[in-house]
Simulated scan of single mutants.
Amino acid sequence: MIERSFRMTDPQGMHARPASAVVKVAKGFSSDLTLVAEDAVSLKNMMKILSQGIQPGTTFTVQASGEDEAAAIQAIADVLKNEGLAEEA
């Protein structure tokens, strides 16, 4: 398992459009991808991601475990950055 920490930079926090982009990327990998904020939830489930209520300035962790974990966590980091959601903490 590998993990990376991020800080939410989007002024609206985690919301539907970027969460959808994260889920789309996450579903392309066989590894288990988890968002750890208030709780640990699957990055392949948009409603669970949104349920965390991640606000600007919040630090959260992304964990990947599986055969393609390194590529998966890098892809998630890229989409978080490209969507203007978060930066590495």
Rank of each mutant, 00 (worst) to 15 (best):
P56F: 00
A71Y: 03
A40F: 00
G13V: 14
Q12H: 05
T9S: 07
G84W: 12
L50C: 09
G66L: 06
T34C: 05
L50Y: 07
S31G: 09
A72Y: 03
N45A: 08
A75L: 09
D39I: 01
I49M: 15
M1H: 08
M1F: 05
V41G: 10
T59G: 04
E38L: 08
S42K: 08
T61I: 14
M8A: 02
A86W: 06
Q52T: 03
M47V: 00
L43G: 04
K44M: 03
E83W: 09
L43F: 01
Q74D: 14
S5F: 06
R7T: 15
L43A: 03
Q12R: 14
Q52C: 02
N82K: 14
V25Q: 00
E87I: 13
M8N: 01
L35V: 09
K48M: 14
P18E: 12
Q52F: 01
L50N: 11
S20Q: 13
E67Q: 14
G13I: 11
I76E: 09
I2D: 05
A64R: 05
E3D: 13
T59N: 11
T59I: 14
T61L: 12
S65W: 03
A16G: 13
M1V: 12
I76N: 08
T58I: 10
A72N: 06
F6Q: 10
V41T: 07
G53D: 09
A75H: 09
T59H: 07
L85P: 08
T9H: 05
L35M: 09
G13T: 14
A72V: 06
E3F: 13
S42V: 06
D68H: 04
A19V: 06
G53K: 12
K27C: 08
E38P: 01
Q55E: 15
S20G: 15
M8F: 01
Q74K: 09
L35F: 13
M8K: 03
V79W: 03
G28N: 02
L33T: 05
L43W: 04
A86F: 05
R7A: 08
E69P: 00
A40Q: 09
R17M: 11
F6G: 10
S30C: 00
A37W: 02
A40M: 06
R4G: 05
S65V: 10
E3K: 15
V25G: 00
G13Y: 11
Q12T: 02
E87V: 15
I2S: 07
V36H: 11
S5N: 15
G13R: 12
G66M: 07
G57H: 10
F60N: 13
A40C: 03
S42Q: 09
G13M: 13
I76Q: 08
V79F: 02
V22P: 01
V23Q: 10
S31A: 15
A19L: 07
V22S: 02
V62I: 15
A71T: 03
L80C: 02
N82I: 03
G84R: 11
F29M: 04
S51W: 02
T61S: 14
S51C: 06
V41S: 10
V22F: 02
I76R: 08
F60S: 07
S51A: 15
L85S: 08
A37Y: 01
P56G: 02
K24I: 04
R17T: 09
V41R: 07
Q74W: 00
Q52I: 01
V79A: 04
G57L: 10
A89Q: 11
V62K: 09
K81G: 01
A72W: 04
K81S: 07
Q12E: 11
L50P: 12
V79S: 03
L50E: 11
N45Y: 00
D68T: 04
E88W: 08
